[in-house]
Design a protein around this nucleic acid. Structure first.
Lengths: 170, 170
DNA sequence: CACGAATAGTTCGATATGGAATTATTTTTC
DNA sequence: GAAAAATAATTCCATATCGAACTATTCGTG
């Protein structure tokens, strides 16, 4: 989008970068997504299963923080996993507000079965780049991601934090 | 997701790259999305308005091809733009199957007003990288995107093309 | 020229996602 | 210790997105 921007070179460069970055991510992402869809799970659900198998049962909020997803989204994602009997919700006795999400044997079996192929697919997708290029790309992405996320935390020009969301027409 | 993968180095590298690429894109994308949301439009809708203002009225299918979106998605996106009176549908007389999407004066005003700030936001977001880094990143993303998209076109191991979508449990 | 294939859009059902309001349960503060 | 503030999760609403089925129209071929 927004091709041929007739602004300063600095903006042309930024725009060009953003278009290519978004395209590449979307292309790889939808390819991986197609694989996962065959097993009936999405990116976020994979993330949940992966976190659970590697780190053990954990509260929903913690999963949300790790995967950068909203609470409502996590509830929905876990609902679907629960529908498929891949995870179960376990109320925490110490703090009864929290619910720990736990892999079922089926869930564990699925993620164990799925991960190797998923990683292989990623490796294949990025194999158009040399090892060195991959490392360069990863490093630049890291810098970019951290930079943007960091400046988002404090870079605001207005110092207040009150809710100021204009409600769109119903 | 899928941190600490204990596979071959090649896969570790690929996984690390994918995680960082996806994160960076998502971070920048949601930041830009927040800006656009204040004006009531999403990424795809911006893409539509942008294409129309730069290239003139065009059929829905053409927009879909440019923006890599499904037909159904385009219909929905244009519905919303039409609700806001930013575009209008014009039936083509020569070929009555096609509908040309056309900017309204309001739509033209909005996109004209919106683009400069959008590009500035992108430039700010990527400003953590030097000009050279931006160019390197863009070039690697281009190579990656083209490589994956290209191999997707022919890389299939099975030569048939029949519909073989296993229907998930309703 | 009629019929079947192709093409443009839409509709429908499902998942994905965020944000605001709500409920339940702590924790904090006076 | 009770009211207030904070926190965990859910619910509700709107948008986003895809794929498959469907409708309308055009094209291609015998």
């Amino acid at each position: 989008m927004t091709s041929r921007w007739k602004g300063p070179k600095r903006e042309q460069r930024a725009l060009d970068l953003w278009v290519k970055l978004a395209r590449a991510t979307e292309t790889v992402g939808s390819m991986l997504g197609a694989r996962l869809a065959e097993r009936g799970i999405g990116h976020t659900q994979l993330g949940v299963l992966d976190a659970l198998v590697h780190l053990g049962p954990m509260p929903i909020a913690e999963l949300g923080a790790k995967l950068l997803r909203s609470p409502g989204n996590m509830t929905a994602a876990i609902d679907r996993l629960e529908d498929q009997q891949l995870v179960e919700r376990v109320r925490d006795d110490a703090d009864r507000r929290v619910i720990r999400v736990k892999l079922t044997p089926e869930g564990k079996a699925l993620i164990t079965d799925l991960l190797p192929g998923h990683v292989t697919a990623i490796a294949e997708a990025v194999s158009v780049l040399t090892a060195e290029e991959q490392e360069t790309l990863a490093s630049l992405c890291r810098k970019l991601g951290l930079g943007v996320a960091g400046s988002k935390r404090d870079g605001g020009t207005s110092a207040d934090k009150g809710p100021r969301k204009p409600r769109r027409k119903s």
